[in-house]
Computed example of a mutant assay.
Amino acid sequence: MRKIISLASIIACFSGPIWAYADTLDNLDTVAESYQMMWNGVAIQNNEVYVSGPLWSDSKGPSVAKIGENGELKPYPSKAWNSTNSEIPLSKRFVNVNAIHKDDRGQLWIVDTGVSTFGGSVIKDAAKLVVVNLQSDKVSDVILFSPLVLKANSYVDDIRFNGDYAYLTDAGAPGLIVLNLKTKKMWRVLDNSPSTVALKNRDIFLDGKVVEVMKGQPLRVNSDPLALSPDKKWLYFAPLQGPWSKVETRYLNDFGMKDNIQNKVHSWFNLPPVGGVAMGKDGIMYFTDLAANALRTISPEGKINTLVVDPRLHWADAPVIDKGSVYLPAFQVDRIATFNEGVSRVEFPIGLYKFDLRQPK
């Protein structure tokens, strides 16, 4: 019988990782660069590349863009959606996009946090999911987040799909959000759980220093990265700093279980702070190790391999796997003025990179 570990002792129950370092492969190619847009999300459809990023990151480009053949950033799905014109209703334009994710139906889901600024409050009717048909480039649905699942300090972070359900992390007000895609009903689970709250004793180190919101206040990011097992039976999730937990999706999908899921959560793995993850069809999870500017993998058995270490991968965020390659948006968010006492240390251009998984060059 599988033992369920008490979340009160979640940290004490983690075993150390099994590290295995592969030779670094020179397979990192530049897909696109920008001196305007700071991106933390990427999606690929039929070799077309889409990127996104929150405006609070000092980005000067669109919130969501399609990259043209010459590297031009075309506002996507339209200029109006990327406008900051206050005359356009908040439900019809982006406010602060944090993630994009493609489903298996050829739709791009855009996660708009709807916050005024980093650490700000959610604006009424601004937090939403915008669904775009990638064939027609038309918005097919706009799903506003219910006031029942949003809190004043919510920051809806990322999304994954499992049949008729979607799961989202809330990095502001720690917890998970479940969305029934058929009924559009939403509910929260694991509010302020040890599995979703960022620990106070786990700092994020980059460039040899602790990332701080302001002097003496280390950055803490609650439930952030998430991934589904290939069979969709398990959801893996964590605060940005880790550690990771997992829960069976059958409990998430059951509205009647929403207040009784905490004792169904298992501790999973004690990974370092990660920018984002992507799950392979073989159950191997790809993750970006922030402190090391690295792309690594963890196998279902817990073996960790290093694929590439490169200074260009500074705060590489949400990776995406497509046709034997991993796409990596290098966000550099820790270098923005907000986290550096008002002085931007971003090293332009912002890069989008591709790592070839198939063979060394």
Rank of each mutant, 00 (worst) to 15 (best):
G119E: 09
R105A: 14
P89D: 12
L108W: 07
G61F: 08
V111Y: 02
S52I: 01
D112K: 09
I143G: 00
V95E: 07
W81Q: 03
L90K: 15
V49C: 05
V131F: 04
A65L: 08
L108F: 06
P75Y: 06
K102Q: 14
R93M: 11
K102G: 02
D137Q: 14
L73H: 08
N46A: 14
E72A: 12
K66Q: 08
G120H: 09
G119N: 11
I100W: 02
N133R: 13
D141R: 11
E72H: 11
T117M: 13
K74G: 01
P54N: 05
S140C: 13
S78N: 05
S63R: 02
N70I: 03
F145S: 05
K124C: 03
Q107I: 07
A43N: 02
K74C: 08
A80V: 11
A126N: 02
E87R: 13
L55G: 02
H101T: 12
I123R: 15
I100Y: 01
V95K: 10
E72N: 08
S78C: 08
E48A: 12
E87A: 07
P54H: 04
P62S: 12
S83A: 09
D103Y: 08
I123M: 15
D58E: 15
I123E: 15
I67W: 00
A65S: 14
K124P: 09
G71D: 09
S136V: 09
S121R: 11
V122S: 05
D103C: 12
D58T: 04
K92N: 14
G114T: 11
S121Q: 13
K124F: 11
